[in-house]
Every structure is written in C-alpha cells, then in structure tokens.
Design a protein around this nucleic acid. Sequence first.
DNA 1: TTACATGCAAATTGTTTGCAACTCA
DNA 2: TGAGTTGCAAACAATTTGCATGTAA
Lengths: 144, 144
Amino acid sequence: MTYSRQRNLIFNIVRNTDVHPTAEWVYEQAKLAMPTIGIATVYRNLNALSQTGLLARIVSPDGTIRFDGSTEEHYHMQCRKCGQLFDLSVVDREAFDELKEAASRAFGMEVENIVLAATLFYGMCPRCAEEKEEEENHEGLKRN
Amino acid sequence: MTYSRQRNLIFNIVRNTDVHPTAEWVYEQAKLAMPTIGIATVYRNLNALSQTGLLARIVSPDGTIRFDGSTEEHYHMQCRKCGQLFDLSVVDREAFDELKEAASRAFGMEVENIVLAATLFYGMCPRCAEEKEEEENHEGLKRN
DNA sequence: TTACATGCAAATTGTTTGCAACTCA
DNA sequence: TGAGTTGCAAACAATTTGCATGTAA
C-alpha cells in the first residue's frame, strides 16, 4: 500500500484512540490536523486499511460501523447506560471453548468461531452503576 | 397499537418465514398481496412492531438490518459459504452461564446478558460442507 | 369524530464513485 | 514517469419525514 500523508494521519487517529470511532468521528479529527481533507478520502482509507488488516472494522449491535486500531483478538462490553464500549483482550479461554463445543453439538455443525465483531457483553460500567445507585438513593429519600 | 390491514400483513409475512428478512424483502412480499402498499409503510410498521416487541430487529454481522418473527431467546449461526442464517432455540445453558461469569470476572463488571442480536456462531452448514469436500476431491483429481 | 395510519414524494443520512489534478516511489 | 491517491461534486442506497387523504374504533 502506497504511503500518503492522509492515510498515515487516518491510521494514527484510529490507532491512538480507544473510542471505537465511526468514519464521521475520524473525519472530524482528521480535519483538525488537515482542514482540506475530504470525507471520501477518509472512507477510502478506512476501507483500505481494514481490508488489509491494519485496522479492524466492527459492526456495533445498533448497526453503526466502527473502526478499531487493535486488531488482536479481543471482546467488547457495552454499558447499557452510557453506551461506551470497553475492551478486553481475552475472556476465559476455557469457558469460551466450552461454549463453542456446546454450540457445535446443538447446531449439528462445527462452530469454527464466534465472530469477534458480533461478540458483545452487555451490562453497566462502574461509573454508571454508581450513578444509578445514587439516583436510587435520592428516590428513596423522596419516598420518605 | 391500532389495527390496519397493512400492519397485519407485514406482521404475518415476517412471522411466517424463517429467512430473517430485510425491510426490502418484506416490501417485495407485501406488494404481491397488496400492490399499492408503500415502502414507508413497511419501514414504519417494522419499526413499530419491533419497538413493541412483537418482532425482533437484528443486526447481522455485515451490518444489514434484519427482522425476525421469533422473539423468544434464540441464537443464530451463519454459514460462511452460503451466508444463510440458522436458528437454534437454546444453546447449552451451563456453558453459556459459565461464559457470562468468566466475562464478569474479566471485565470487573457484572455481565447481565450477551445481546441476542450480537450472538452469532460461525461455521459451515452441512450442504456447503459437502460441496466444499466435493470441490476438494475434484482438485485432488486434477493434481494427479 | 378524532386519533392514528397510509401512500406519495421529498428530504436525510451514510457511503461510494467519476474525474481531473496531484504526489509518492 | 506512472501507478496510485486526493479533493470535489455528483451519485447511490437505505431509511425517515411532511403532508393531504383515508380508515379504525
């Protein structure tokens, strides 16, 4: 892949954040460093970079397409209150393999993988859990 | 939710198929029974029906939005050759719960659920597995 | 009768493409 | 130099919205 200032910039923007950005977000960031950059360039490069495996392209469960600078095997957890995506490099391998085997038996075909992009754990992050507890305390006071 | 001929038709189309249709597919089917129906009506009703939980809205890993008449807890498996989605009502509960617990420990937050829409197992369906084997046999012959 | 639903067309959003100018190797 | 890349604008696809009309309760 040929070098270009734009491609390099886009690659670094995605690699140096952990927000799992959308193309639009990358475009906004890129404009800060290079105001004349076009959105088509951003799309072309995000696609090129993820096709060659330098970036990962993930489909979030709401259907929006996001990019991820970390292409290693890892999983995402989304907070059901604030929506933030968290990374985790490895989930307990044994439990994961066991699920894969159970699924193979149940489906009657060999499950080769559980697609990374589609693996999402769902719960509440510590900050939101705390906030929610506070809210419930306030409600409790009102009730008295 | 108010009754209408269109809403009823759309609901039945989705409920009576297991192809996990896109909005476009539902529109094509609906036109067969009601040629004057508009695509906006299809979208509005698919959204309304899935918001009230009468249908499930699922995001397939390629990012396309699909609907599913079965709103019970179940999982999908996609064949990596032909792309077909298969249903399975229950995967081994124990292995699933164990994964959930392992993930909770690893993330340091309670995993409440693994989102259904995002749970996809990936492999090859029996027909495609057979086809692939045949293809490999032919290649084998050529090599001799 | 009135709140809600429809069909149509226009608007919106997210993404891709054609093309002439430019840039990296 | 020549293949590959860019910025711009136009094209596209999927989905939503505005509005006048129609329908269910």
